[in-house]
Computed example of a mutant assay.
Amino acid sequence: MAEPVDAATFLDACRVDPAVQELRGDYRAVLIVVEGIVPGRAPADPGAIDALVAAAEAHARALLAQLPVTELPHIAAWREAYQAFGAKPQRTRNSLEALTRRAQSGLPRVNPLTDIYNAISVLHQIPLGGEDLLAYQGPAQLVRATGDEPFDAIANGEATVEYPEPGEVIWRDNAGVTCRRWNWRQGRRTALTEQTTSALFICDSLAPMSAAALAAAADALTAALRGFGPDVRATRRVVTA
Rank of each mutant, 00 (worst) to 15 (best):
R93D: 09
R93C: 08
R93K: 13
S95I: 08
S95H: 08
L96R: 10
E97Y: 05
E97C: 01
A98G: 09
A98E: 14
L99A: 06
L99C: 03
T100W: 11
T100P: 14
R101P: 00
R101S: 01
R102S: 12
R102W: 08
A103N: 15
A103F: 08
A103Y: 13
A103P: 15
S105T: 15
G106L: 11
G106H: 06
P108K: 13
P108N: 10
R109C: 00
R109Y: 13
R109W: 15
V110T: 13
V110Q: 13
V110S: 11
V110W: 11
V110H: 12
V110I: 14
N111T: 02
N111K: 10
N111H: 10
P112C: 03
P112T: 03
P112R: 06
L113N: 07
T114D: 09
T114W: 04
T114K: 10
D115P: 07
I116A: 03
I116N: 06
I116T: 08
I116C: 01
Y117E: 08
Y117M: 10
Y117G: 03
N118G: 06
I120D: 02
I120C: 04
I120Y: 08
S121R: 05
S121T: 12
V122K: 07
V122W: 03
L123C: 05
L123P: 09
H124D: 09
Q125H: 13
Q125I: 10
I126C: 14
I126E: 06
I126A: 08
I126G: 04
P127L: 09
P127G: 12
P127V: 10
L128Q: 08
G129N: 13
G130R: 09
E131L: 09
E131S: 06
E131D: 05
L133A: 02
L133Y: 02
L134Q: 02
Y136T: 03
Y136L: 07
Q137F: 01
Q137G: 12
Q137E: 14
G138Y: 02
G138N: 04
G138R: 07
P139L: 04
P139D: 11
P139A: 12
P139Q: 10
A140Q: 00
A140T: 03
A140R: 01
Q141W: 13
Q141K: 08
L142G: 03
L142W: 09
V143E: 06
A145Q: 03
T146Y: 13
T146A: 15
T146M: 15
T146R: 15
G147F: 00
G147R: 00
G147I: 01
G147E: 10
D148S: 02
E149C: 00
E149F: 10
E149M: 08
P150K: 07
F151A: 09
D152C: 07
D152Y: 04
A153P: 01
A153F: 14
A153K: 02
